[in-house]
């Protein structure tokens, strides 16, 4: 488990997000500014372009570069949010062996970065509503002896549930919050892209 696996994750995530770009944008057009899909697609396409040019020695370098690229290329709020996630995720893995436990810590650090940046709380109808149950499920799976792939699969499953649970919520953060009550009844695009990322991770880091 090393640079190659994580490179695969990023490439797979990029293609998944590309395939789902129209879907994400459609979700965002209901309650936001109709750019989440195109923003994520642009950001991850830029990450892939970097992967094509540069070879990385370590997972933490790779992840940090991906984070910086997302920060500069995504454009919307998900730029600094996912950017921060990957920066902190990478930093947490610096010098560490890749194990279910260290990746778990890295995921926590990354999500901590999202929280620090976005100041969201559970139930605000944000990506955190997918991340939070995912982290819990990951920890439970690791405690139950699951390997990295198994733990990530559990996390992705929990994220999907969290994503679905955002539909009835009223947005309290981001552009959607301007809609108030009218934001209820729509699935949150950020929680959706988070689920896609985790599903991609479960596929590629097994």
């Amino acid at each position: 488990m090393g640079v190659e696996n994580f490179t695969n994750w990023l490439r797979d995530a990029a293609s998944t997000l590309h395939e789902n770009a129209a879907y994400l944008t459609e979700l965002d057009s209901a309650i936001g500014d109709a750019d989440h899909g195109s923003n994520m697609d642009r950001g991850f396409a830029a990450v892939v372009a970097v992967l094509d040019e540069v070879s990385f020695e370590s997972v933490d370098e790779l992840m940090k570069k991906a984070g910086m690229t997302l920060v500069s290329k995504v454009g919307g709020a998900s730029g600094p949010l996912y950017g921060t996630f990957f920066l902190r995720f990478g930093t947490a893995l610096a010098g560490a062996e890749i194990t279910p436990a260290t990746v778990g810590e890295a995921l926590k650090a990354g999500v901590g970065g999202i929280l620090a940046r976005g100041k969201a709380e559970l139930g605000d109808k944000t990506m955190y509503d997918a991340w939070a149950p995912a982290l819990d499920a990951y920890d439970d799976a690791v405690a139950g002896g699951a390997d990295l792939g198994g733990a990530l699969a559990a996390a992705a499953e929990a994220a999907a549930k969290g994503r679905d649970a955002t539909t009835p919520l009223v947005a309290r953060k981001g552009r959607a919050s301007y809609l108030g009550e009218r934001s209820a009844g729509h699935q949150d695009p950020g929680a959706t892209s988070t689920t896609l990322l985790l599903e991609s991770a479960a596929r590629t880091l097994a």
Partner: peptide, 13 residues
Amino acid sequence: GLDETTFGTDAAA
């Protein structure tokens, strides 16, 4: 903006 016409913000910029 990410460029002249694309809306967005960039922390590095």
